[in-house]
Amino acid sequence: MHEHEHDTAKWRIYEALLQATPDLSYVFDLQHRFIYANKALLDMWGMRWEEAAGKTCLELGYAPWHAAMHDDEIEQVIATRRPVRGEVPFPHTTEGTRVYDYIFTPVFGPDGQVEAIAGSTRDITERTRHAEHLQLLVNELNHRVKNTLATVQSIARQTFANADGMDDACGKIEERLLALASAHDVLTRENWHSADVAELARGLAAQGRFDARQFEVQGESCRIDPRRAMALAMALHELCANAARHGALSTPDGSVHIAWQRNRRGDGEELELVWRERGGPQVQPPAQRGFGSRLLERGLKHDMGGNVDLAFEPEGVTFRVSIPLPDDAHEVDR
């Protein structure tokens, strides 16, 4: 094969590769005019090569600032004989603005001088969006971890302050942390968007610690935001733990009825949930409020942004909580 034929064959191979790649490939001459553009770049421009050949960026419709930036970069490559790399947004004819990473590199002639500038550009829009989304997730994770650690700190401090010895404290802390972890599991499955009240309530009977027949759960699917979901999950745990120690769940004949419904509230809606115990020992109001009672009456009211009522009625504990629902609660359900 003659040298000319060999060079022609190599060019056919290079041309095939350049036309097949999804990256944008092109060459400028020393006057900043396009002397080559592959199919991907022509498609982005919405042009045929005959329309683009020999034109500069400005003549092809690039924004003046964009064309001027590339003019400066081409001159920099010629002067320094080194590649230049950058990142730039570009309005695509069919897909809106995309973000591109590009490199301009010198092409040296037989005399060692720069005779052209070759360029390659890659669409990094999805990668950029993914990186931004990942950073948002990291920021959210940091926020959630800090909030969770603050919750754990509060649980530990309050539990030890009100416990009857170390064994009692360790047992209660473990139970409360398990309840916290269970709520986290529910929210994680929903990407921390919301949690279904039905799943939180029915999860109590499915824990295996109690006879599921002692629970009666009634209510339609209704989603609440992560903060309220965590607060409600901890409240249900405290009610369950108290019922197991002193209330309806401390005897095989006792039962717990959990029901909720949506009610109109001014221009919006609220969720009203009621926990009612029956069939257990006669209830005596506690001489002093422990951590669980304070969490139900004060902490939950703060976290829920609604109203709570904890009543130690002789026939069984009754707890009511109202939770404001967002305007799009129905949409979330779907």
Rank of each mutant, 00 (worst) to 15 (best):
H302W: 11
Q288C: 09
R122N: 09
D309H: 09
P83A: 09
I35K: 06
E15L: 10
A311N: 11
Y14E: 12
F312A: 00
H6W: 12
H92C: 13
R264N: 13
G109S: 13
M69N: 11
N307A: 09
A206D: 13
T159P: 00
I13Y: 13
E132I: 03
N142R: 02
G306K: 07
G254A: 03
L177Q: 14
R228T: 06
A183R: 02
A233G: 08
D185T: 00
N139F: 08
A150Q: 14
M230Y: 04
Q19C: 05
C222I: 11
D303V: 03
R144M: 01
W49Y: 02
C222F: 10
T318H: 04
R228E: 02
T188D: 13
T188K: 14
I323D: 01
S250Q: 06
A40T: 07
M47A: 13
H6C: 12
W275F: 05
Q282L: 11
P314E: 04
S250G: 07
A150D: 15
E190R: 04
E126Y: 00
R85L: 12
Q31N: 13
A9M: 09
D303L: 09
L271H: 07
M234G: 14
F319L: 03
A311T: 14
F34S: 01
G299I: 02
T188S: 13
A37E: 15
L41E: 15
T56P: 00
P89L: 09
I258A: 08
L58M: 04
G306L: 06
A259D: 08
H143S: 05
A9F: 12
Q135S: 14
